[in-house]
């Protein structure tokens, strides 16, 4: 349970970190909170030659409003999601998801940028990027670019972040007063990765859901939007019939993989149960 030997570089700017990565011949890893990377190193699932510590890069910190967007620095810790007043006001879905992410001491270290860059399909925050229609800012050789969450998650642990690139910030459209959120997950034990989880963001008018984005996690290789279920609910008043129709539509949205622990049919069933609960809550809020 000890990592293979590596050398350590404490980076003080994004360019410094990227240059160190390039010098290593891309045999390097960035370490943010380390709450996923350090176990992977200890288990020797990964064995980079160089560890580049990005915790001291000032520009990756902080939460602030930027026009219509809330800009959340990549180094924002999970625990800050629970306490930051701007997150509570303008990104309440992240606030709602945060208590479900790991345990308190892990939330003290783990970062939003690390969670999104890792893209664990069982993680809460990557899926919430989809529900929020967030954009991920990435620093690469040709400068900064922004990638929509819909285009960001490519396959298992594979994202739009290329080798040596750094996630610098997450941009979330600011929450508006005609919007509603819901989040929940089913897990065997609080703090464990969910068997299935879901978050949603609806834009409402006169008791109708105008548009809705529904994102699931722990249902396959990538966090997944339930587009058919979204279509059933959009433009409608949520009632019992709509909920049943949306639950039925999940067949077309989710294809949980084979797994010894949770067979696909069971996971799909749990996803339907969860969707029903969340839409019922949404109907009361709309």
């Amino acid at each position: 349970m000890k990592a293979r030997a590596f050398s350590y570089h404490r980076a003080h700017s994004v360019d410094d970190a990227r240059e160190a990565h390039a010098r290593s011949g891309d045999d390097a890893r960035y370490i943010a909170g380390g709450q996923s990377l350090v176990p992977a190193l200890a288990l020797r699932l990964q064995a980079p030659r160089i560890l580049i510590d990005i915790n001291h890069i000032e520009e990756l910190r902080g939460v602030r409003c930027d026009g219509e967007w809330l800009r959340i620095g990549a180094l924002t810790r999970h625990c800050e999601m629970l306490t930051d007043p701007l997150i509570a006001e303008f990104a309440p879905l992240l606030r709602a998801a945060a208590p479900f992410v790991a345990h308190p001491a892990i939330r003290n270290r783990g970062t939003l940028g690390g969670s999104v860059a890792l893209a664990d399909p069982a993680s809460e925050f990557p899926a919430m990027m989809l529900a929020l229609d967030a954009e991920i800012e990435i620093a690469g050789t040709s400068g900064r670019r922004r990638v929509r969450a819909d285009d960001f998650f490519i396959d298992l642990f594979e994202t739009a972040v290329g080798p040596g690139e750094i996630v610098t910030a997450i941009l979330v459209p600011r929450f508006r007063c005609n919007q509603r959120i819901c989040f929940d997950e089913l897990a065997r034990r609080r703090g464990d990765y969910a068997l299935v989880g879901c978050g949603m963001l609806a834009t409402c008018k006169d008791g109708l859901v105008e548009t809705i984005r529904i994102a699931f996690f722990s249902v396959g290789n990538v966090p997944t939007r339930a587009r058919s279920a979204e279509a059933v609910v959009s433009g409608a008043r949520i009632d019992a019939d709509r909920i049943v129709a949306a639950q039925a539509a999940l067949d077309r949205d989710l294809a949980p993989p084979e797994s010894d622990e949770v067979p696909p049919a069971m996971r799909l069933h749990l996803a339907r149960v969860l969707l029903g609960r969340l839409l019922a809550r949404m109907s009361e809020a709309a």
Binding site: Y8, I31, G34, Q35, V38, D53, A105, I106, N108, R109
Partner: peptide, 12 residues
């Protein structure tokens, strides 16, 4: 703040 001593390196 409470953190795991096994999830960070001493150099950090």
């Amino acid at each position: 703040r409470a953190v795991h001593g096994c999830l960070m390196f001493a150099v950090q």
